[in-house]
Simulated assay, not measured.
Amino acid sequence: MSERIALVTGASAGIGFESALALRSAGFIVYAGARRVDRMEPLTAKGIHILSLDVTDDQSMVAAVTAVETARGRVDVLVNNAGYGSYGSLEEVPLAEGRRQFDVNVLGLARMTQLVIPRMREAGKGRIINVSSIGGKIFEPLGAWYHATKFAVEGMSDSLRLELKPHGIDVVVIEPSGTDTEWGTIAGEGLMMASGHGPYKEQAHVMAAALASTSGQILSTPPRVVAKAITRAATAKRPRTRYPVGRGAWSVLALRRVLPDRAFDAVLWNSYQRFIR
């Protein structure tokens, strides 16, 4: 059986970087794409091919997929990992930033998926793995834009799963909990810039501390753990539709299913009390 071809977006750090390594170790020919190409250079020593890829630039996305399909004839597994978290009150975050959040987290994912589907459909097989979050099922104060995008990824993935099933293409969702990457620190800094000095400043300080706590903390999930789940999803003969992964992911999602909204609101906010100074 020929080696399978995987394309990973957002591979310059964290989950994407570790997923490229894990997929390569599992025997895939791996193409890793991101805007910060220099940060992916260490991947080349492992035999991973790196690509310049900006998921907000259509020409960049077309060029990346074309490069892989020209070199290998196909993409067997697409890992849509590129994304970031935009936090701040809905009142204060400019609409331009909200659009950018959707451009990266939803529309970039959708366009990358559009580009690989034709060859997958012709082959009668393929796998699309969308990195969502437990934030696609739960919510946080000052996280309206971010959570809206992850809810969208969940719904889009469910629809895709059904429409692509007749063509032999699997669609899988990965739902990490707080992960030890730079994501939380960057999201917290953006939150403070947007809402750290206005009418939402008290909530902003609490939420920024909570977001930053996922970076470099012993209780956070290492990105390699999420990468292992992505690799399982890529290699399973019949993958699950969803892979909650990380500390507390299953329990948080279970609480969301069984608790009424206001009860879950209380549990969620009480969990942030330790960050109040």
Rank of each mutant, 00 (worst) to 15 (best):
D54G: 12
T56Q: 05
T149M: 00
I15C: 02
S157G: 10
G83R: 00
A266N: 08
V104N: 03
A233P: 08
G248I: 03
D170S: 05
R247E: 07
R119S: 15
E175K: 13
G98A: 06
A82I: 05
E140H: 15
V68F: 13
N270V: 01
A204P: 07
F264C: 12
K137C: 04
I138S: 07
G73P: 05
R232G: 04
S177Y: 07
Q203N: 11
M120H: 03
A152G: 01
F28M: 05
A254G: 13
L109F: 09
V267S: 06
A187D: 02
A67V: 00
D54K: 12
Q273T: 14
I50A: 04
L107R: 07
S220N: 06
L219E: 14
L255C: 12
K125Y: 11
N105R: 09
T149G: 01
V8I: 12
R39P: 06
G190L: 02
R24D: 02
E140S: 15
E163C: 09
D261L: 11
T149Y: 00
L253Q: 03
V226S: 05
I230A: 00
D58P: 12
V171N: 07
Q217E: 09
L43P: 06
A152P: 01
S177I: 06
A144Q: 09
T66N: 15
I169Y: 09
E18S: 10
V79C: 08
G14E: 08
G248Y: 03
T113C: 09
G155L: 02
V37S: 04
Q114A: 14
A64G: 09
A110S: 15
A210T: 13
P239E: 06
I134L: 12
S157H: 02
I138K: 10
R111G: 04
S159K: 10
Q59R: 15
E140L: 15
W145R: 09
E202A: 14
L191G: 11
D265R: 14
A34F: 04
P223T: 07
A208S: 09
F28T: 05
E122C: 01
F17D: 09
A148E: 04
Y272F: 14
V104G: 00
G198S: 07
G73F: 00
G27P: 09
G124E: 00
A209W: 07
L259E: 02
E182T: 08
A82E: 06
P222T: 01
T179N: 00
E122W: 00
R72M: 11
R100T: 10
R72K: 15
D58T: 13
Q59P: 12
T113M: 11
Q217F: 13
A6R: 05
S25Y: 03
G155A: 14
K228M: 01
D58C: 11
I117C: 13
I230C: 00
I134T: 13
G196K: 06
A63W: 10
K228R: 07
A34Q: 08
D180W: 00
A123H: 03
I117N: 05
T214D: 06
G47D: 06
